[in-house]
Computed example of a mutant assay.
Amino acid sequence: MGIKIVAKNKKAYHEYHIDATYEAGMVLSGPEVKSLRAGKANIRDGYVKIDEKGEAYMYNVHISLYTFATHNPNEPLRSRKLLLHQREIKKLIGKLKEKGLALIPLKIYFIENGKAKVELGLARGKRQYDKRATLKEQQTNREIQRAMRHDR
Rank of each mutant, 00 (worst) to 15 (best):
N113C: 01
A123T: 03
K95R: 10
K97P: 01
H17Q: 11
K107T: 00
S29P: 00
L120I: 04
K40Y: 12
Q128E: 13
Y16A: 08
K4Q: 12
A102G: 00
N42H: 05
G39N: 06
E137H: 15
K136Y: 10
Y129C: 04
M148C: 09
R124E: 10
I93E: 10
S29V: 10
P105E: 03
R78N: 12
L82M: 09
Y66C: 05
K91T: 09
S64C: 09
G100D: 03
T67A: 12
A20W: 07
R87S: 10
Q145L: 14
N72M: 13
L103C: 01
Q138R: 15
A20E: 15
D130L: 07
Y109I: 01
E75H: 07
H17F: 15
M1S: 13
A24F: 06
E55G: 02
I5C: 03
D130N: 13
R149A: 14
R87I: 05
G30V: 05
E119L: 07
N72R: 13
Y59M: 12
M26L: 14
I89Y: 02
K131L: 12
I108A: 03
Q86W: 02
K10H: 03
L65W: 01
N42A: 06
Q86L: 04
M148N: 14
K99A: 06
I144H: 14
H150D: 15
K97T: 03
Y129T: 14
Q128T: 09
E112S: 09
A38G: 04
K97G: 00
G94P: 01
N74K: 11
A24V: 03
I93P: 00
M26D: 01
K115W: 04
N72W: 09
Y129H: 13
I104Y: 00
S29N: 09
Q128G: 04
R37N: 08
P105C: 02
R44F: 01
S64V: 04
K107R: 12
I43E: 06
S35N: 08
L103E: 01
L106G: 02
Y57F: 15
P31Y: 04
K81F: 07
R44E: 14
T140Q: 15
G25P: 02
T70F: 11
V6A: 05
T134C: 02
S79T: 07
Y16R: 07
L83Q: 11
V61F: 08
E88P: 03
M1P: 11
V48G: 07
N141I: 12
G125D: 01
R124H: 08
R146E: 15
Y16L: 08
I50W: 08
R152W: 11
P73G: 09
I93A: 03
G100N: 02
L65V: 09
Y109H: 07
G100E: 02
A56N: 08
N72S: 14
A102P: 00
V33T: 10
L101G: 00
V33A: 05
G54V: 09
E88C: 06
G2F: 07
A20D: 11
I50R: 10
Y16W: 14
G25D: 02
G94N: 11
H85T: 03
A116R: 05
L65P: 01
P76R: 11
